[in-house]
Design a protein around this nucleic acid. Sequence first.
DNA 1: ATTTGGGGTTGATCCAGATCAAAACACCGG
DNA 2: CCGGTGTTTTGATCTGGATCAACCCCAAAT
Lengths: 231, 231
Amino acid sequence: MPESDYPDIRGLHLFHEMADEHFTALMRGAYVQNFPPQIELITEGEPSDFLHVVLSGAVELFSHWNGRESSMAAVRPISTFILAATIKDAAYLMSARTLEKSRIALIPSQDVRAVFDADNDFARAIVTELAQCYRSVIKAQKDLKLRTSLERLANYLLRQHKNASGTEFDLPFEKRRLASFLGMTPENLSRAFKSLQPYGVSVTGTRIRIDDPTNLVAFAKPDPLIDDFAT
Amino acid sequence: MPESDYPDIRGLHLFHEMADEHFTALMRGAYVQNFPPQIELITEGEPSDFLHVVLSGAVELFSHWNGRESSMAAVRPISTFILAATIKDAAYLMSARTLEKSRIALIPSQDVRAVFDADNDFARAIVTELAQCYRSVIKAQKDLKLRTSLERLANYLLRQHKNASGTEFDLPFEKRRLASFLGMTPENLSRAFKSLQPYGVSVTGTRIRIDDPTNLVAFAKPDPLIDDFAT
DNA sequence: ATTTGGGGTTGATCCAGATCAAAACACCGG
DNA sequence: CCGGTGTTTTGATCTGGATCAACCCCAAAT
Protein backbone atom coordinates (compact mmCIF):
# COMPACT_ATOMS: atom_id res chain seq x y z
CA MET A 1 0.00 0.00 0.00
CA PRO A 2 1.42 3.38 -1.04
CA GLU A 3 2.39 5.62 1.84
CA SER A 4 0.51 8.48 0.22
CA ASP A 5 -2.71 6.82 1.40
CA TYR A 6 -1.63 6.65 5.03
CA PRO A 7 -2.80 10.14 6.03
CA ASP A 8 -6.34 9.59 4.79
CA ILE A 9 -6.72 6.48 6.87
CA ARG A 10 -4.86 7.90 9.83
CA GLY A 11 -7.33 10.77 9.75
CA LEU A 12 -10.25 8.51 10.60
CA HIS A 13 -11.33 8.57 14.23
CA LEU A 14 -10.84 4.84 14.25
CA PHE A 15 -7.13 5.02 13.47
CA HIS A 16 -6.30 8.41 14.86
CA GLU A 17 -5.28 7.67 18.42
CA MET A 18 -3.45 4.40 18.06
CA ALA A 19 0.33 4.02 18.47
CA ASP A 20 2.41 4.73 15.40
CA GLU A 21 4.02 1.34 15.37
CA HIS A 22 0.63 -0.36 15.41
CA PHE A 23 -0.67 1.83 12.66
CA THR A 24 2.27 1.16 10.40
CA ALA A 25 2.02 -2.53 11.23
CA LEU A 26 -1.58 -2.46 10.01
CA MET A 27 -0.68 -0.51 6.89
CA ARG A 28 2.19 -2.81 6.01
CA GLY A 29 -0.16 -5.76 5.77
CA ALA A 30 -2.83 -3.77 3.94
CA TYR A 31 -3.19 -3.07 0.28
CA VAL A 32 -5.16 -0.68 -1.84
CA GLN A 33 -7.10 -1.51 -4.96
CA ASN A 34 -9.09 0.38 -7.55
CA PHE A 35 -12.36 -1.19 -8.48
CA PRO A 36 -14.67 -0.41 -11.38
CA PRO A 37 -18.38 0.17 -10.66
CA GLN A 38 -20.70 -2.71 -9.88
CA ILE A 39 -18.05 -5.02 -8.49
CA GLU A 40 -19.13 -7.24 -5.64
CA LEU A 41 -16.46 -6.75 -3.00
CA ILE A 42 -17.77 -9.10 -0.37
CA THR A 43 -20.61 -11.57 -0.16
CA GLU A 44 -22.78 -12.12 2.88
CA GLY A 45 -22.07 -15.37 4.67
CA GLU A 46 -18.39 -15.39 3.86
CA PRO A 47 -15.79 -15.13 6.61
CA SER A 48 -14.51 -11.60 7.16
CA ASP A 49 -10.98 -11.59 5.78
CA PHE A 50 -10.53 -7.86 5.49
CA LEU A 51 -11.61 -4.66 7.07
CA HIS A 52 -12.49 -2.34 4.18
CA VAL A 53 -11.84 1.37 3.99
CA VAL A 54 -13.45 3.39 1.21
CA LEU A 55 -10.88 6.00 0.13
CA SER A 56 -12.84 7.32 -2.82
CA GLY A 57 -15.95 6.40 -4.74
CA ALA A 58 -18.90 4.77 -3.03
CA VAL A 59 -19.97 1.36 -1.81
CA GLU A 60 -23.42 -0.10 -1.32
CA LEU A 61 -24.21 -2.60 1.41
CA PHE A 62 -27.07 -4.92 0.57
CA SER A 63 -28.62 -8.21 1.56
CA HIS A 64 -30.40 -11.14 0.03
CA TRP A 65 -33.04 -13.53 1.22
CA ASN A 66 -35.17 -15.94 -0.68
CA GLY A 67 -34.50 -14.30 -4.02
CA ARG A 68 -35.21 -10.79 -2.76
CA GLU A 69 -32.63 -8.08 -2.38
CA SER A 70 -32.53 -4.95 -0.27
CA SER A 71 -30.14 -2.02 0.00
CA MET A 72 -29.09 -1.57 3.59
CA ALA A 73 -26.71 1.38 3.50
CA ALA A 74 -24.28 3.36 1.41
CA VAL A 75 -20.69 3.95 2.48
CA ARG A 76 -18.90 7.08 1.30
CA PRO A 77 -15.29 8.19 1.79
CA ILE A 78 -13.57 8.20 4.06
CA SER A 79 -14.99 5.45 6.20
CA THR A 80 -14.80 1.78 6.98
CA PHE A 81 -17.32 -0.98 6.74
CA ILE A 82 -17.93 -4.42 8.26
CA LEU A 83 -15.98 -3.56 11.36
CA ALA A 84 -18.24 -5.68 13.56
CA ALA A 85 -17.70 -8.83 11.50
CA THR A 86 -13.97 -8.26 11.56
CA ILE A 87 -13.85 -7.86 15.32
CA LYS A 88 -16.10 -10.81 16.03
CA ASP A 89 -14.33 -12.91 13.41
CA ALA A 90 -17.77 -13.80 12.11
CA ALA A 91 -19.40 -14.06 8.71
CA TYR A 92 -20.49 -10.91 6.87
CA LEU A 93 -24.16 -10.15 7.35
CA MET A 94 -24.28 -7.98 4.25
CA SER A 95 -22.76 -8.00 0.80
CA ALA A 96 -20.98 -4.99 -0.65
CA ARG A 97 -20.57 -3.69 -4.17
CA THR A 98 -19.01 -0.58 -5.63
CA LEU A 99 -21.48 1.99 -6.88
CA GLU A 100 -18.83 3.92 -8.77
CA LYS A 101 -15.18 3.55 -9.58
CA SER A 102 -13.73 3.24 -6.09
CA ARG A 103 -10.43 3.12 -4.32
CA ILE A 104 -10.52 0.79 -1.39
CA ALA A 105 -8.02 -0.21 1.27
CA LEU A 106 -8.11 -3.77 2.52
CA ILE A 107 -6.69 -4.46 5.95
CA PRO A 108 -6.44 -8.12 6.93
CA SER A 109 -8.94 -8.83 9.70
CA GLN A 110 -6.38 -10.91 11.51
CA ASP A 111 -4.10 -7.91 11.81
CA VAL A 112 -6.95 -5.73 13.01
CA ARG A 113 -7.78 -8.21 15.74
CA ALA A 114 -4.14 -8.52 16.72
CA VAL A 115 -3.72 -4.77 17.05
CA PHE A 116 -7.05 -4.58 18.83
CA ASP A 117 -5.59 -6.91 21.46
CA ALA A 118 -2.37 -4.94 21.73
CA ASP A 119 -3.46 -1.31 21.48
CA ASN A 120 -5.86 0.05 24.05
CA ASP A 121 -6.44 3.32 22.27
CA PHE A 122 -7.43 1.44 19.17
CA ALA A 123 -9.78 -0.74 21.21
CA ARG A 124 -11.39 2.41 22.62
CA ALA A 125 -11.75 3.95 19.18
CA ILE A 126 -13.48 0.80 18.04
CA VAL A 127 -15.95 1.13 20.88
CA THR A 128 -16.86 4.63 19.80
CA GLU A 129 -17.17 3.57 16.19
CA LEU A 130 -19.35 0.56 16.98
CA ALA A 131 -21.57 2.54 19.31
CA GLN A 132 -22.05 5.04 16.51
CA CYS A 133 -22.88 2.29 14.02
CA TYR A 134 -25.26 0.63 16.42
CA ARG A 135 -27.15 3.82 17.03
CA SER A 136 -27.37 4.52 13.32
CA VAL A 137 -29.01 1.17 12.68
CA ILE A 138 -31.43 1.70 15.54
CA LYS A 139 -32.42 4.99 13.95
CA ALA A 140 -32.89 3.30 10.60
CA GLN A 141 -35.10 0.74 12.26
CA LYS A 142 -37.23 3.40 13.91
CA ASP A 143 -37.51 5.08 10.52
CA LEU A 144 -38.74 1.83 9.01
CA LYS A 145 -41.17 0.84 11.73
CA LEU A 146 -42.67 4.18 12.64
CA ARG A 147 -43.00 5.91 9.28
CA THR A 148 -44.74 5.41 5.98
CA SER A 149 -42.67 5.36 2.83
CA LEU A 150 -43.72 8.91 2.01
CA GLU A 151 -42.59 10.12 5.41
CA ARG A 152 -39.31 8.27 5.03
CA LEU A 153 -38.67 9.93 1.69
CA ALA A 154 -39.55 13.38 3.01
CA ASN A 155 -37.19 12.99 5.95
CA TYR A 156 -34.48 11.57 3.76
CA LEU A 157 -34.70 14.60 1.50
CA LEU A 158 -34.52 16.93 4.47
CA ARG A 159 -31.42 15.16 5.76
CA GLN A 160 -29.72 15.49 2.39
CA HIS A 161 -30.85 19.07 2.11
CA LYS A 162 -29.27 19.89 5.46
CA ASN A 163 -25.91 18.46 4.46
CA ALA A 164 -25.96 20.19 1.10
CA SER A 165 -26.64 23.66 2.51
CA GLY A 166 -28.26 25.18 -0.53
CA THR A 167 -31.71 25.08 -2.05
CA GLU A 168 -30.74 22.31 -4.46
CA PHE A 169 -28.79 19.08 -4.27
CA ASP A 170 -28.20 15.87 -6.20
CA LEU A 171 -29.29 12.44 -5.14
CA PRO A 172 -26.13 10.53 -4.28
CA PHE A 173 -27.21 7.46 -6.24
CA GLU A 174 -29.77 6.08 -8.64
CA LYS A 175 -33.42 6.30 -7.72
CA ARG A 176 -33.88 2.56 -7.83
CA ARG A 177 -31.27 2.20 -5.11
CA LEU A 178 -32.77 4.99 -3.11
CA ALA A 179 -36.09 3.18 -3.38
CA SER A 180 -34.62 -0.05 -2.06
CA PHE A 181 -32.77 1.84 0.62
CA LEU A 182 -36.02 3.46 1.75
CA GLY A 183 -37.83 0.13 1.62
CA MET A 184 -40.07 0.78 -1.37
CA THR A 185 -40.28 0.01 -5.08
CA PRO A 186 -38.97 2.33 -7.82
CA GLU A 187 -42.51 2.87 -9.09
CA ASN A 188 -43.62 3.88 -5.69
CA LEU A 189 -40.71 6.23 -5.21
CA SER A 190 -41.60 7.97 -8.43
CA ARG A 191 -45.14 8.49 -7.22
CA ALA A 192 -43.90 9.55 -3.79
CA PHE A 193 -41.86 12.35 -5.37
CA LYS A 194 -45.00 13.58 -7.04
CA SER A 195 -46.91 13.45 -3.77
CA LEU A 196 -44.29 15.75 -2.26
CA GLN A 197 -44.71 18.41 -4.95
CA PRO A 198 -47.37 20.25 -2.92
CA TYR A 199 -44.73 20.59 -0.19
CA GLY A 200 -42.35 22.36 -2.51
CA VAL A 201 -40.23 19.47 -3.71
CA SER A 202 -39.29 19.48 -7.38
CA VAL A 203 -37.30 16.79 -9.13
CA THR A 204 -35.36 17.06 -12.36
CA GLY A 205 -33.52 13.86 -13.05
CA THR A 206 -31.25 13.35 -10.07
CA ARG A 207 -31.46 16.99 -8.97
CA ILE A 208 -33.77 17.91 -6.12
CA ARG A 209 -35.00 21.34 -5.21
CA ILE A 210 -36.73 22.15 -1.94
CA ASP A 211 -38.36 25.55 -2.23
CA ASP A 212 -39.68 25.96 1.27
CA PRO A 213 -38.17 23.62 3.83
CA THR A 214 -40.57 24.73 6.58
CA ASN A 215 -43.43 23.44 4.50
CA LEU A 216 -41.79 20.06 4.04
CA VAL A 217 -40.68 19.97 7.66
CA ALA A 218 -44.27 20.43 8.78
CA PHE A 219 -45.16 17.28 6.90
CA ALA A 220 -42.04 15.21 7.59
CA LYS A 221 -41.77 15.99 11.31
CA PRO A 222 -38.06 15.17 11.49
CA ASP A 223 -36.87 13.95 14.87
CA PRO A 224 -33.29 14.24 16.11
CA LEU A 225 -33.63 10.76 17.61
CA ILE A 226 -34.15 9.36 14.12
CA ASP A 227 -32.71 11.83 11.69
CA ASP A 228 -29.69 13.43 13.32
CA PHE A 229 -26.66 11.51 12.28
CA ALA A 230 -24.56 13.03 15.03
CA THR A 231 -26.55 12.11 18.14
CA MET B 1 -26.49 -2.61 46.29
CA PRO B 2 -26.49 -5.95 48.12
CA GLU B 3 -23.38 -8.05 47.59
CA SER B 4 -25.58 -11.04 46.87
CA ASP B 5 -26.27 -9.52 43.46
CA TYR B 6 -22.61 -9.18 42.56
CA PRO B 7 -22.12 -12.70 41.16
CA ASP B 8 -25.01 -12.39 38.70
CA ILE B 9 -23.57 -9.25 37.21
CA ARG B 10 -20.01 -10.47 37.38
CA GLY B 11 -21.17 -13.49 35.39
CA LEU B 12 -22.00 -11.35 32.37
CA HIS B 13 -19.41 -11.36 29.61
CA LEU B 14 -19.34 -7.61 29.89
CA PHE B 15 -18.15 -7.61 33.50
CA HIS B 16 -16.36 -10.92 33.63
CA GLU B 17 -12.82 -10.02 32.70
CA MET B 18 -12.40 -6.66 34.35
CA ALA B 19 -10.18 -6.06 37.38
CA ASP B 20 -11.74 -6.76 40.77
CA GLU B 21 -11.14 -3.28 42.05
CA HIS B 22 -12.88 -1.76 39.06
CA PHE B 23 -15.79 -4.13 39.38
CA THR B 24 -16.31 -3.35 43.04
CA ALA B 25 -15.93 0.35 42.28
CA LEU B 26 -18.78 0.05 39.79
CA MET B 27 -20.89 -1.93 42.21
CA ARG B 28 -20.36 0.50 45.05
CA GLY B 29 -21.90 3.28 43.03
CA ALA B 30 -24.69 1.11 41.72
CA TYR B 31 -27.99 0.30 43.26
CA VAL B 32 -30.69 -2.28 42.73
CA GLN B 33 -34.38 -1.65 42.61
CA ASN B 34 -37.51 -3.72 42.28
CA PHE B 35 -40.06 -2.36 39.86
CA PRO B 36 -43.68 -3.34 39.36
CA PRO B 37 -44.87 -4.11 35.82
CA GLN B 38 -45.51 -1.34 33.33
CA ILE B 39 -43.11 1.16 34.84
CA GLU B 40 -41.32 3.39 32.39
CA LEU B 41 -37.67 3.14 33.37
CA ILE B 42 -36.20 5.47 30.82
CA THR B 43 -37.58 7.78 28.18
CA GLU B 44 -36.08 8.31 24.75
CA GLY B 45 -34.37 11.62 24.36
CA GLU B 46 -33.20 11.84 27.96
CA PRO B 47 -29.50 11.80 28.81
CA SER B 48 -28.22 8.38 29.76
CA ASP B 49 -27.63 8.53 33.50
CA PHE B 50 -27.44 4.82 34.18
CA LEU B 51 -26.44 1.60 32.54
CA HIS B 52 -29.25 -0.83 33.32
CA VAL B 53 -28.89 -4.51 34.10
CA VAL B 54 -31.98 -6.71 34.17
CA LEU B 55 -31.48 -9.19 37.02
CA SER B 56 -34.95 -10.71 36.88
CA GLY B 57 -38.21 -10.02 35.12
CA ALA B 58 -38.31 -8.52 31.65
CA VAL B 59 -37.98 -5.14 30.00
CA GLU B 60 -39.37 -3.86 26.72
CA LEU B 61 -37.54 -1.32 24.59
CA PHE B 62 -39.84 0.81 22.47
CA SER B 63 -39.95 4.02 20.52
CA HIS B 64 -42.32 6.79 19.65
CA TRP B 65 -42.75 9.06 16.70
CA ASN B 66 -45.62 11.29 15.73
CA GLY B 67 -48.04 9.57 18.07
CA ARG B 68 -47.13 6.07 16.92
CA GLU B 69 -45.33 3.53 19.04
CA SER B 70 -43.31 0.47 18.18
CA SER B 71 -41.70 -2.29 20.20
CA MET B 72 -38.06 -2.55 19.31
CA ALA B 73 -36.78 -5.39 21.50
CA ALA B 74 -37.25 -7.29 24.73
CA VAL B 75 -34.49 -7.64 27.30
CA ARG B 76 -34.43 -10.69 29.55
CA PRO B 77 -32.13 -11.57 32.46
CA ILE B 78 -29.31 -11.42 32.80
CA SER B 79 -28.35 -8.69 30.41
CA THR B 80 -27.76 -5.00 30.04
CA PHE B 81 -29.40 -2.39 27.90
CA ILE B 82 -28.59 1.04 26.49
CA LEU B 83 -24.87 0.39 26.63
CA ALA B 84 -24.24 2.45 23.50
CA ALA B 85 -25.91 5.56 24.90
CA THR B 86 -23.96 5.20 28.13
CA ILE B 87 -20.64 4.93 26.35
CA LYS B 88 -21.31 7.77 23.95
CA ASP B 89 -22.80 9.87 26.71
CA ALA B 90 -25.69 10.54 24.37
CA ALA B 91 -29.45 10.60 24.67
CA TYR B 92 -31.42 7.34 24.77
CA LEU B 93 -32.80 6.39 21.38
CA MET B 94 -35.42 4.12 22.93
CA SER B 95 -37.63 4.13 25.98
CA ALA B 96 -37.83 1.18 28.33
CA ARG B 97 -40.58 -0.20 30.52
CA THR B 98 -40.89 -3.26 32.70
CA LEU B 99 -43.07 -6.00 31.28
CA GLU B 100 -43.27 -7.84 34.58
CA LYS B 101 -42.14 -7.27 38.13
CA SER B 102 -38.43 -6.77 37.61
CA ARG B 103 -35.26 -6.43 39.57
CA ILE B 104 -32.90 -4.01 37.93
CA ALA B 105 -29.41 -2.80 38.72
CA LEU B 106 -28.57 0.79 37.89
CA ILE B 107 -24.93 1.66 37.36
CA PRO B 108 -24.16 5.35 36.96
CA SER B 109 -23.07 5.99 33.38
CA GLN B 110 -20.34 8.27 34.60
CA ASP B 111 -18.78 5.39 36.54
CA VAL B 112 -19.06 3.10 33.54
CA ARG B 113 -17.25 5.62 31.36
CA ALA B 114 -14.60 6.17 34.01
CA VAL B 115 -13.90 2.46 34.33
CA PHE B 116 -14.02 2.13 30.56
CA ASP B 117 -11.14 4.61 30.42
CA ALA B 118 -9.19 2.82 33.12
CA ASP B 119 -9.75 -0.86 32.44
CA ASN B 120 -8.66 -2.27 29.10
CA ASP B 121 -10.32 -5.62 29.60
CA PHE B 122 -13.59 -3.86 30.26
CA ALA B 123 -13.13 -1.76 27.12
CA ARG B 124 -12.55 -4.95 25.12
CA ALA B 125 -15.60 -6.61 26.59
CA ILE B 126 -17.64 -3.61 25.58
CA VAL B 127 -16.41 -3.97 22.01
CA THR B 128 -17.60 -7.56 21.88
CA GLU B 129 -20.92 -6.63 23.39
CA LEU B 130 -21.50 -3.72 21.02
CA ALA B 131 -20.49 -5.75 17.98
CA GLN B 132 -23.02 -8.37 19.06
CA CYS B 133 -25.73 -5.74 19.51
CA TYR B 134 -24.94 -4.14 16.18
CA ARG B 135 -25.19 -7.42 14.35
CA SER B 136 -28.46 -8.24 16.07
CA VAL B 137 -30.03 -5.02 14.86
CA ILE B 138 -28.76 -5.59 11.33
CA LYS B 139 -30.44 -8.98 11.40
CA ALA B 140 -33.65 -7.42 12.64
CA GLN B 141 -33.48 -4.94 9.81
CA LYS B 142 -32.98 -7.66 7.22
CA ASP B 143 -35.93 -9.47 8.74
CA LEU B 144 -38.04 -6.34 8.35
CA LYS B 145 -36.99 -5.40 4.84
CA LEU B 146 -36.78 -8.78 3.19
CA ARG B 147 -39.73 -10.66 4.67
CA THR B 148 -43.49 -10.36 4.81
CA SER B 149 -45.15 -10.29 8.19
CA LEU B 150 -46.20 -13.91 7.82
CA GLU B 151 -42.63 -14.94 7.12
CA ARG B 152 -41.41 -12.93 10.08
CA LEU B 153 -43.87 -14.65 12.38
CA ALA B 154 -42.98 -18.10 11.05
CA ASN B 155 -39.29 -17.49 11.59
CA TYR B 156 -39.89 -15.98 14.99
CA LEU B 157 -41.78 -19.10 16.06
CA LEU B 158 -38.99 -21.32 14.77
CA ARG B 159 -36.43 -19.34 16.74
CA GLN B 160 -38.46 -19.66 19.92
CA HIS B 161 -39.07 -23.31 19.20
CA LYS B 162 -35.36 -23.94 18.89
CA ASN B 163 -34.59 -22.35 22.25
CA ALA B 164 -37.41 -24.19 23.96
CA SER B 165 -36.34 -27.66 22.80
CA GLY B 166 -39.70 -29.35 22.98
CA THR B 167 -42.75 -29.49 20.76
CA GLU B 168 -44.48 -26.75 22.74
CA PHE B 169 -43.53 -23.41 24.22
CA ASP B 170 -45.07 -20.24 25.59
CA LEU B 171 -44.89 -16.85 24.00
CA PRO B 172 -42.68 -14.72 26.22
CA PHE B 173 -45.09 -11.79 26.19
CA GLU B 174 -48.51 -10.62 25.13
CA LYS B 175 -49.56 -11.00 21.53
CA ARG B 176 -50.09 -7.30 21.07
CA ARG B 177 -46.46 -6.72 21.95
CA LEU B 178 -45.33 -9.53 19.73
CA ALA B 179 -47.32 -7.92 16.93
CA SER B 180 -45.62 -4.58 17.43
CA PHE B 181 -42.27 -6.27 17.74
CA LEU B 182 -42.84 -8.05 14.42
CA GLY B 183 -44.05 -4.83 12.82
CA MET B 184 -47.72 -5.70 12.42
CA THR B 185 -51.07 -5.05 14.09
CA PRO B 186 -52.62 -7.38 16.68
CA GLU B 187 -55.48 -8.17 14.32
CA ASN B 188 -53.06 -9.13 11.64
CA LEU B 189 -51.05 -11.29 14.00
CA SER B 190 -54.15 -13.18 14.95
CA ARG B 191 -54.89 -13.88 11.30
CA ALA B 192 -51.26 -14.74 10.65
CA PHE B 193 -51.40 -17.48 13.30
CA LYS B 194 -54.37 -18.94 11.47
CA SER B 195 -52.53 -18.82 8.18
CA LEU B 196 -49.77 -20.91 9.73
CA GLN B 197 -52.15 -23.68 10.82
CA PRO B 198 -51.63 -25.60 7.56
CA TYR B 199 -47.95 -25.69 8.46
CA GLY B 200 -48.63 -27.41 11.76
CA VAL B 201 -48.77 -24.43 14.10
CA SER B 202 -51.46 -24.50 16.77
CA VAL B 203 -52.12 -21.76 19.28
CA THR B 204 -53.93 -22.03 22.61
CA GLY B 205 -53.74 -18.75 24.44
CA THR B 206 -50.09 -18.02 24.86
CA ARG B 207 -49.04 -21.64 24.23
CA ILE B 208 -47.68 -22.59 20.81
CA ARG B 209 -47.33 -26.07 19.40
CA ILE B 210 -45.36 -26.87 16.28
CA ASP B 211 -46.22 -30.37 15.14
CA ASP B 212 -43.85 -30.73 12.25
CA PRO B 213 -41.02 -28.20 12.19
CA THR B 214 -39.78 -29.39 8.77
CA ASN B 215 -43.10 -28.32 7.32
CA LEU B 216 -42.84 -24.87 8.84
CA VAL B 217 -39.17 -24.60 7.96
CA ALA B 218 -39.99 -25.23 4.31
CA PHE B 219 -42.23 -22.19 4.41
CA ALA B 220 -40.17 -19.93 6.66
CA LYS B 221 -36.79 -20.60 5.04
CA PRO B 222 -34.81 -19.54 8.11
CA ASP B 223 -31.39 -18.15 7.39
CA PRO B 224 -28.49 -18.18 9.85
CA LEU B 225 -27.57 -14.68 8.68
CA ILE B 226 -30.91 -13.44 9.96
CA ASP B 227 -32.15 -15.91 12.52
CA ASP B 228 -29.13 -17.27 14.36
CA PHE B 229 -28.61 -15.22 17.44
CA ALA B 230 -25.09 -16.54 17.90
CA THR B 231 -23.49 -15.63 14.56
C1' DA C 1 -28.50 7.50 -37.76
C1' DT C 2 -30.31 3.37 -35.91
C1' DT C 3 -30.42 -0.09 -32.70
C1' DT C 4 -30.27 -1.81 -28.06
C1' DG C 5 -30.72 -1.86 -23.23
C1' DG C 6 -31.34 0.04 -18.86
C1' DG C 7 -33.25 3.29 -15.96
C1' DG C 8 -37.41 6.07 -15.02
C1' DT C 9 -42.28 7.22 -15.32
C1' DT C 10 -47.24 6.28 -15.81
C1' DG C 11 -51.45 3.79 -15.62
C1' DA C 12 -54.26 -0.30 -14.31
C1' DT C 13 -54.82 -3.80 -11.26
C1' DC C 14 -53.98 -6.57 -7.24
C1' DC C 15 -52.84 -7.76 -2.63
C1' DA C 16 -50.97 -7.47 2.09
C1' DG C 17 -51.89 -5.42 5.80
C1' DA C 18 -54.28 -1.41 8.31
C1' DT C 19 -58.35 0.28 10.15
C1' DC C 20 -62.93 0.13 12.05
C1' DA C 21 -66.41 -2.14 14.62
C1' DA C 22 -68.14 -5.57 17.45
C1' DA C 23 -68.17 -9.78 19.74
C1' DA C 24 -65.74 -13.25 22.66
C1' DC C 25 -62.78 -13.99 26.23
C1' DA C 26 -59.66 -13.48 30.20
C1' DC C 27 -58.45 -11.52 34.31
C1' DC C 28 -59.04 -9.21 37.85
C1' DG C 29 -61.01 -6.63 42.56
C1' DG C 30 -64.83 -6.24 45.28
C1' DC D 1 -70.56 -14.38 42.00
C1' DC D 2 -70.60 -10.12 39.47
C1' DG D 3 -69.36 -6.08 36.93
C1' DG D 4 -65.36 -3.80 34.84
C1' DT D 5 -61.40 -3.50 32.10
C1' DG D 6 -58.24 -4.84 28.73
C1' DT D 7 -56.83 -8.33 25.34
C1' DT D 8 -57.81 -11.33 21.55
C1' DT D 9 -60.50 -12.68 17.82
C1' DT D 10 -63.55 -12.18 13.86
C1' DG D 11 -65.67 -9.93 10.09
C1' DA D 12 -66.10 -6.03 6.81
C1' DT D 13 -63.93 -2.52 4.58
C1' DC D 14 -60.29 0.47 3.09
C1' DT D 15 -55.75 1.83 1.53
C1' DG D 16 -50.71 1.99 0.98
C1' DG D 17 -47.84 -0.01 -1.63
C1' DA D 18 -46.59 -4.00 -4.86
C1' DT D 19 -47.01 -5.91 -9.24
C1' DC D 20 -47.68 -5.98 -14.14
C1' DA D 21 -47.34 -3.83 -18.48
C1' DA D 22 -46.49 -0.27 -21.54
C1' DC D 23 -43.96 3.59 -22.74
C1' DC D 24 -40.43 7.27 -22.60
C1' DC D 25 -35.90 8.78 -22.29
C1' DC D 26 -31.13 8.74 -22.77
C1' DA D 27 -26.69 6.84 -23.44
C1' DA D 28 -23.64 3.51 -25.46
C1' DA D 29 -22.73 0.50 -29.33
C1' DT D 30 -22.99 -0.70 -34.14
